[in-house]
Amino acid sequence: MAARKRATEKEELQATDSGDEDGPEELSFRKAKEEAVEKRRLAVESAQREKALLKEKRRRREELFKEQKKRKLLPNTVLEEITSTACSRADEEHTTQEQDDVTESEARSSEDSEAEAVDARLQESYRAVQLKAWDQISLQEQAAKDFIQSCLYGPGSNRTTVNQFFSLANKKGTIKKPAMQFVDNTWGTEEKQKAKRFKLRRVHKQLTSF
């Protein structure tokens, strides 16, 4: 009984196979492999093409942005002028050659690089400290110093800047004098530079708008 049943099953199987007119193609192993490789190559190529397209698109967008920015930006000459005003004072101090104690500067540079290397690996809220330095500045002492600082200069201490204070004194004195930063050239250099930069920018803007 079982043998008969198996035979009928076989027949049925054959019947379904022979249902598609042409018989199964003879596929040699080599051909199949080639086909598969071809298929994969095509897939890779198309993916690359897509990527390249995307890249191109991005590049074009970037260029557009740059151009837009450039259109908004001041011309090079004005920019140079602005940067030169900013640096002029710093230059004055640093054109003169400064030489530190050799070993000290070396030590510092190596320390800096180490700190940076650590920083790159850590999360933003984490900080690398040297245990040795931490030990020296006792926490209590630091808290005491912070207390003094907050008492004298904290909120509600009603402080002003030295410049404003002395300018007011000049104004209210029996001999009237202009504000401190006009009396003394060393005062308010930052503000003066800022004003100069602002003026240049404004002049340019007005010129272009006409």
């Binding site: 402080r159 007011l168 401190m180």
Partner: peptide
Amino acid sequence: LTDIQAQLPPPVRQKKFGT
């Protein structure tokens, strides 16, 4: 002396009449 005064810590604001 003005160069020294420029670098002193912030003083207390004092209200002066007419300023």
